[in-house]
């Protein structure tokens, strides 16, 4: 009785450890491959374009929407205490420290991480990854590294963009709709912030970028079983990387704020 319960649980745990180990090994190989020759600039530029430039519209729209909606709630909340002036300060804090990096991370996990998983998954089941190996090319070096570099650079840049857009989202609402003074908003937005906060935001974004690229590539690389496998790879990559983004966000917030 107890065994019928414990056996599947045990194999579940072993399976999860197996996956974690596999992910760790591949990640280690990716980091080691970063400085290996030959350097493929063309491939890297293509990834910069796919990860960075093409994600600009999505990041702008979501950042604008989330920062504006957040400002609505802040304005409403602080109005209960006749403290409307605090809304812009808290808006600044929230946008820089949390909303911009997390929204950018989650949107890119959906837009970029899933595309990586689907592309590598298709290459895996059509033997293109084996073909790479047979042409004496390490798939980790050729496929993982440019995606990792692109995400590690582009997610922080897009987070910067998201902060900028978030500033104007709050402005739109608090100045435009709530009628607060534009001059006051401009100085209050930064009141609770220090340079440290920008560093925190960019550090988070860097970690999120690494998670997105590594999980996306890993899920794609480990795809098995034809069309169904290729269908599952992006889904599981988005779920896994979103989860890890949120978990990492919690710990980074706790650690970096000390």
């Amino acid at each position: 009785m107890l065994q019928t319960f414990l056996d599947p649980l045990g194999s579940r745990i072993l399976g999860a450890l197996d996956q974690a180990g596999d992910f760790a090994v591949l990640s280690g190989r990716t980091f080691r491959a970063v400085f290996r020759r030959p350097f493929d600039g063309e491939n890297l530029m293509r990834q910069f374009l796919a990860v960075g430039v093409n994600s600009v519209p999505v990041v702008v729209l979501t950042s604008l929407a989330v920062s504006a909606v957040f400002a609505v709630q802040l304005a409403f909340g602080f109005k209960q205490f006749q403290a409307e002036g605090l809304a812009s300060q808290v808006e600044g804090l929230a946008v820089v420290r949390e909303l911009a990096p997390v929204i950018t991370g989650l949107m890119l996990a959906g837009r970029v991480g899933s595309a990586m998983a689907a592309e590598l998954g298709t290459m895996q089941v059509t033997e293109q990854i084996d073909a790479l190996e047979c042409l004496a090319t390490d798939p980790i070096h050729y496929l993982f590294v440019p995606r990792l570099l692109a995400a590690a650079l582009m997610v922080p840049l897009l987070t910067g963009l998201s902060i900028y857009v978030g500033y104007w989202g709050g402005y739109l609402l608090l100045v435009g709709a709530e009628g607060q003074s534009a001059v006051v908003y401009q100085s209050e937005f930064y009141k609770l912030l220090a340079f440290k906060d920008v560093r925190i935001a960019l550090t988070k974004a860097l970690v999120f970028g690494l998670i997105i690229a590594l999980v996306g590539c890993w899920r794609g690389y480990r795809t098995r079983g034809g069309a169904e496998g290729v269908g599952n790879a992006p889904t599981s990559s988005v779920v896994t990387s979103s989860l890890w983004i949120l978990i990492a966000d919690f710990f980074l917030t706790k650690l970096l704020l000390v």
Partner: peptide
């Protein structure tokens, strides 16, 4: 090792059943 294996593979041409071209 990986490096040695890649050196050997440079001397072998593999033609896959479904061609496996980079699409």
């Amino acid at each position: 090792s990986w490096q040695e294996l890649f050196e050997v593979r440079k001397h072998i041409g593999m033609c896959f059943q479904m061609a496996a071209l980079f699409d």
